[in-house]
Simulated scan of single mutants.
Amino acid sequence: MPYTRTLAELLETYACDAIAGEYYMPDDPEMPDFRVSAVLPDKRKDAWYPALVEDIRTHGLRVPIWIHDGEINDGCHRIAAAQDLGIEVLPCTDEAPDDPEGSAVVYSFATRAWTYHGWVPQRAD
């Protein structure tokens, strides 16, 4: 069920995300800061980021930020765009996205393993 969080709250939340191939691990002191505020500069580097900002400017934030076990699992690009556009309250959900292209794989901190949500990737033969 969708709910809202403020941008300030989301910026201080940890992102289950990657920077240069490294994933946030809560018990690894060698890992960089993976609060959302720290990963946003990396998200803004993607070539398609300006198109996302323009889409959100035109249509609003249509896809909620996915929060799983207190971590942002999908939505850091949208959070960056919301910050750039001055959006202070964002829609969020605890439910996995239906779109397999959105967030297909999620890291479980409990099991320290990747799991698929709602689909199984097809092997390219």
Rank of each mutant, 00 (worst) to 15 (best):
I56N: 01
Y107F: 12
Y23R: 15
H77D: 11
G118D: 02
D125P: 05
C16S: 15
G75P: 02
D69T: 08
E30D: 12
A18V: 00
Y49P: 03
I56K: 03
E88A: 14
P2L: 15
I87S: 06
T93N: 02
G75V: 03
V106N: 05
A15N: 02
P2D: 14
V63D: 05
D42W: 15
Y116E: 06
P91C: 06
M1N: 06
V53R: 12
A47T: 04
H59D: 01
W119I: 06
Q122N: 14
D28V: 01
T115Y: 12
I79G: 10
L7E: 05
G102T: 04
T4Q: 12
K43F: 09
E30N: 15
P64V: 07
A15E: 02
D28Y: 04
A51W: 11
V106D: 01
A18T: 03
A81L: 09
D33W: 05
D69E: 15
I87A: 07
V120G: 07
E88M: 12
V53T: 10
V106S: 07
A51P: 00
C92T: 00
D46I: 11
P41G: 08
A51L: 13
H117S: 11
D46E: 12
G86I: 02
E101G: 14
L11V: 01
T58I: 00
R78D: 02
E22M: 13
E9P: 06
V89S: 07
L61S: 00
K45D: 00
D125K: 09
W66M: 11
P41V: 04
C92V: 00
W48R: 15
T6P: 05
D33P: 01
L52I: 05
D74S: 10
A8G: 05
G21Y: 05
A15M: 02
L85K: 09
I19G: 08
D17A: 15
V105F: 10
V36P: 03
D74I: 03
Q83P: 04
E95L: 15
P121N: 04
Y14W: 13
T58L: 15
R123L: 12
E30L: 13
E30H: 12
S108Q: 09
R35N: 05
N73P: 00
R78G: 05
G70E: 03
W119H: 14
L85W: 10
A51V: 08
N73L: 13
I65W: 07
D84Y: 09
I56G: 04
H59Q: 07
P64I: 10
G118T: 01
E54K: 15
E12M: 14
M31S: 14
D74P: 01
E22Q: 15
I67R: 03
M31W: 00
K43T: 00
D27G: 00
P50V: 06
H59Y: 11
P97R: 13
T111C: 04
R112F: 06
